[in-house]
Amino acid sequence: MTTDDATLAAGPSAEKRGLPLPMLLALASAVFLTVLTEALPAGLLPAWSADLGVTESAMGQAVTAYAIGTALTAIPLSAATAGWPRKRLLLVTMAGFAVANTVTAVSSDYALTLAARFLAGVAAGLAWAMLVGYARSAVPAGVRGRAVAVVMAGVPVALALGVPAGTFAGAAFGWRPTFALLTVLAVGVIGWIAALAPEVPGRRTTDRAPVLKTVLTPGVVPILFVTVTFVLAHTVLYTYIASFLERVGMGGSVGAVLLLFGGASMAGIWLVGAQIDRRLRLLTVAAVVLVGAASAVLALGSGSPVLVYAAAVLWGLGWGGVPTLLQTAATDTGGDAAQAMLVTLWNGAMAAGGAVGGVLLSALGTEPFPWSVLALLMPVMVVVVAARRHGFPASRPS
């Protein structure tokens, strides 16, 4: 059974129901947990590194370990579990988050912490590889982009509310209780999915597209290039945003900056969700322009708190819809196989971003971060504009 054929498995009246919000919100809660586990170190890095007795650049590799776990395992594990019922597989991945965050909360050993983060990344790889297909399987073709946007709303909500709340909680109670709260959240998400997510069968072996065939599909390579480069640009700066703000005299404003970024991200994904089924290409170009503008403001105006806050808004408005845009483009163009590749490369870029950012921080400080984002976004814009026929077309396939 293909992903789109699984629409029938979600219920005989799926085509008539439109958007099944209870199911989609349950999946959005899984996305929320995934993103919160991934992004929370950005607000806790200074205290976390001091407690474990390592440098901030070394502690930033907790993001890298998470991303490596996803990048190394997303394709092989998604292939190995392709025949599993989707609900059961999603519950297993959420249990993986519960275990990983529990170990992180109690660990006093740097190596054990990295291992726990690697496990969380493995769980994330499995979750990301299936969530888009799971959402698309339950809705009519004409609103699949909107369904993905609802599920991906977990991303900006995590960034707007979860990460700032985690940052404030870390400052008030310490980073260990903050990670322990993630375990409690994981248990709640497991219960929500168990109650609301439908049973959808996995796919037969004959339905799985070979990797080489998918790569050769027109449009797939441009999408994957944009994914790697855009995510690398974002992660270099986002992972070390607390360090960047501290260096420009705004160390006490990390929570406020992340709150603005997350709130703007929610607005961004709302706009994307409303227009993606008609204007995917235009929205992708706009996202690149907005994140580039934010980087330019940070590069030239980081001495002004007002400009830093304005940059956070531009950054969030541009970045909020990027996961939805790229995952929709990948699935439209190359199906589930392209989606699994995107997940792998996305997290490989995250790993590289954490590593490159750590090198920059140790060697040159935080000043090069926004300039590096601008440099990386230039080829992204070129490829998006060039991929007019395949990858980022003006009109999406029905």
Rank of each mutant, 00 (worst) to 15 (best):
A116K: 00
T3C: 04
A47H: 06
I223W: 09
M266Y: 12
L21R: 08
F168L: 14
T227R: 11
W371T: 11
M130D: 00
L114P: 01
T229G: 04
L8M: 06
L290A: 14
L91S: 06
E199M: 08
T229P: 03
S302R: 12
G11K: 13
A135Q: 05
P76T: 12
G273K: 12
W371S: 09
A82T: 12
V228T: 12
A14Q: 11
A42C: 06
D109L: 02
L44H: 02
A363F: 06
L185G: 02
A293P: 05
A197G: 06
H390E: 14
M130G: 00
L259A: 15
Q327G: 06
V99A: 04
T55W: 05
S372C: 13
D5E: 15
T235G: 03
V35T: 08
G188N: 13
A165E: 07
P368D: 07
T205H: 14
L126M: 08
A79R: 15
A30G: 14
A9G: 14
G303V: 03
G303H: 09
A349M: 10
V184Q: 04
A147C: 07
P370W: 02
A100W: 00
P210T: 13
L33K: 01
A312K: 04
K213G: 10
R86I: 07
A9C: 10
V184M: 04
V99T: 04
A105H: 03
A28M: 05
L360R: 01
L212W: 14
L72F: 12
A105W: 04
V106S: 06
